[in-house]
Amino acid sequence: MSKMILFIDDDSDIVEVVKNRLESYRYTVISADNGEDGIMMARQEKPDLIIMDILMPGMTGGEAVKLLQEDHTTQNIPTIFLTSLSSEILYDKEGDKININGRFYTAVAKPFDPKRLMAVINGIIGDA
């Protein structure tokens, strides 16, 4: 069975494009357009990787990852962030790492190079 990626982003166009890209690399992709739904899906589906937008209406990516961290069923799921440029103002960014709640996560800045996103994903969970 191929590896599963949960993609959480409120922009449905991004979700569709990135989903198609990831599927072309044979990953299974599920998605949510807000933090609350994303957390629920993470608990139910236990994906291999979560890709999360930071700035979303309602719960931000930072808040969502905090809840995922506090839940022992989801705390070991690797998470990477998609940062749009202005979210760097909210969080302390160092190179390609972003500091959220005192922990460093890999961050990919939008607009991202698809090849770089794939390389990052591959580096964390390997091929599909």
């Binding site: 166009d13 494009v17 890209r21 749009s84 440029l85 939008k110 607009p111």
Partner: peptide
């Protein structure tokens, strides 16, 4: 601009 650019870029790339 960053979201629309991402969408356009990767759609066309695909």
């Amino acid at each position: 601009l960053s979201n629309p650019l991402t969408v356009v870029k990767d759609s066309i790339a695909q």
